[in-house]
Amino acid sequence: MNDDITSASTAHPAPARRGLGAIARSQMRNIAPFLTLIVLIVFFSVVSPSFATLGNVGNILTQVSVTGIIAAGLTFVILCAEIDLSVASIANATGIAVAYFTLQDSYVNIANVPVPGWVAILLALVACSALGVVNAAGLVVIGIPSFIMTLAMMQIAAGISALLVRGQIAYKIPALISTLGSGSVGGIPCIVLVAAFVLLLSHLVLTYTRFGRYVYLVGSNREAAENAGVNVKLILGAVMVISAVCSGIAGMLGVAHFGSAQQNEFDTYLLDSIAAVVVGGTSLFGGRGGIGNTIVGLFVLGVLNNGLDHVNIDSFLKILIRGLILLLALIINVYAQRLRETSAD
């Protein structure tokens, strides 16, 4: 009864009265990351002459590509208000798998199983999809919270990586992967094009397909989606598989980009990809944000990482600064959610 009063009171923000302030408040999660990005670009351009050069723009684009592919898949998961902590491990395992199925030079002491290049790629894709299916099954069939389920998968995938390379380093990978990961077309690195393609495709799926709409609505109010007859479990399972496949692709290209496949090669990518999604303004509570936000987030992190290399700064301090920026983004994320709820609910 009293609920009715309170909801009635806040229920009429009277569209006519919604001025710029209200719009800014409800768009806070999109505006804040973009402003951050502009401030960072201006700042580094002023303090470092080597920052705002065409060559360095190419550097930044290349540096964020692997993270970008992982973050594209992760965006689906976070939009559903779930999390995937196994992305970096799955990337690593898939990268190692594709090398494992390629003939290595004789000095590399790995008991590998050489197959033709396209078969190796296919097997690697099957492997990462399978890991995604296990994540999905744990989440929707057994009912393990995704945080815990993917924590376990993080360890499992790391274990698979360890078993396949046994402390060795593999260098040979299929030619196609090699081209996509380290080649370039007309001066543009292929890996940047692949990342752009994956991000674009993800954006189209999220914005223009029925599946994409369900992803947003499941994240926005899971119970209401279920009560509307949406197969919530199928959607949640699908996003876990999408995330794993994106990680797998990133893993293969990453191996080509780095020039080798070895254990723990992707460890920093877990934090980077989650940070990219969240810094960009996609809500950890689900239903808000998207690939556009993720791209902004990627560039905030990319510019920050790259820019700190261009200014004379203690390299140990860099780690702390990154942590602080992430904290700031999380605060904005939670705060934007609250602003939106009070203005719309």
Partner: peptide, 17 residues
């Protein structure tokens, strides 16, 4: 609360099913 999406526009609420 168990059947509506408060932060979405009306048309997304009516079309979901």
């Amino acid at each position: 609360r168990a059947m509506l999406f408060h932060q979405e526009p009306v048309y997304k609420n009516t079309s979901i099913s």
